[in-house]
């Protein structure tokens, strides 16, 4: 067995593991936890800033950072030493995420599981929606589908299990919840989450410069819109005329007249 290298980061132990001969995994823990994810993203930033030759890309996940590299350009142990130095760097700054206000329609026509979810949470659907909209969600990672965010954490009273029988297909833009997570599906997909709404925003478009709208470490506030607004924005989005901008940068949410 290949012994993991142990390191301290922010007073907590982390492990550096071999994932094959062309990737290292820096593991900060084995749970979904905002503070662990922030360490993952801060390390990804420091690695990008260090511009170490031979690193191909980094893959942030809930609780670990995978560093994929070209073994013909940097040896496993040499890279491990570089990473240990970066981990010990107390000057590491938190990852600067962007804030997005993502419009979501919670109308029953596009929210087939909202009533069930609200019943499970023992609250009226309007209250469930206002609680879901009234908080900031953290983008832990993207995965499963191109540009698909895993957002957390829902408070315990909104957390509910996955559906017993997954749906064969949910529409693009569907907003699903299960456990403490919210996911937004960039495209139609089979899905076991409870669908509580739909966004007209295009989360993934490989024709634009930054194909994924959201990035790990971004923050998202869901904003309730009515069905007519949803339809109008959906039509604009289909023509590429509704492109969301982060709300902590300058720029309107919708195109001008």
């Amino acid at each position: 067995m290949i012994r993991p290298a142990l390191a301290e980061a922010a007073g907590e132990q982390c492990r550096i593991l071999a994932n094959g001969d062309a990737a290292l995994v820096v593991e900060f823990g084995d749970r979904i936890d905002l503070t662990l994810n922030e360490r993952v993203l801060a390390l990804a930033d420091r690695i990008a800033a260090a511009a170490i030759p031979g690193i191909l890309e980094t893959v942030p996940t809930f609780r670990s950072l995978m560093i994929s590299f070209d073994p013909s350009r940097i040896a496993h142990r040499a890279l491990q030493r570089r990473v240990l130095v970066l981990l010990a760097d107390a000057e590491g700054r938190p990852h600067p995420g962007r804030l997005w206000r993502l419009p979501v329609c919670y109308d029953p026509d596009v929210a087939p599981d909202l009533a069930d979810a609200a019943r499970h949470a023992d609250m009226p659907p309007e209250i469930f929606v206002s609680r879901h909209c009234g908080m900031i969600h953290h983008v832990y990672m993207l995965g499963f589908l191109p540009g698909q965010p895993y957002l957390g954490d829902l408070p315990a009273e909104l957390a509910l299990p996955r559906k017993e029988t997954p749906r064969a297909k949910v529409a693009a833009g569907s907003v699903g919840v299960a456990s403490h997570m919210t996911c937004v599906f960039p495209r139609a997909t089979p899905c076991g989450l409870n669908i509580i709404g739909r966004t007209p925003a295009t989360l993934w478009d490989h024709r634009r410069g930054e194909a994924a709208l959201l990035a790990p470490g971004d923050r998202v506030a869901f904003e309730q819109i009515g069905f007519e607004d949803f339809r109008r924005l959906n039509e604009l989005a289909a023509r590429g005329e509704f492109v969301l901008a982060p709300s902590d940068a300058a720029g309107p949410m919708e195109p001008g007249p």
């Binding site: 994932n19 990737a23 593991e27 979904i32 994929s68």
Partner: peptide, 10 residues
Amino acid sequence: VTSDGIVRGS
């Protein structure tokens, strides 16, 4: 396990 990175050949 909590999801983490996969490589070709995992």
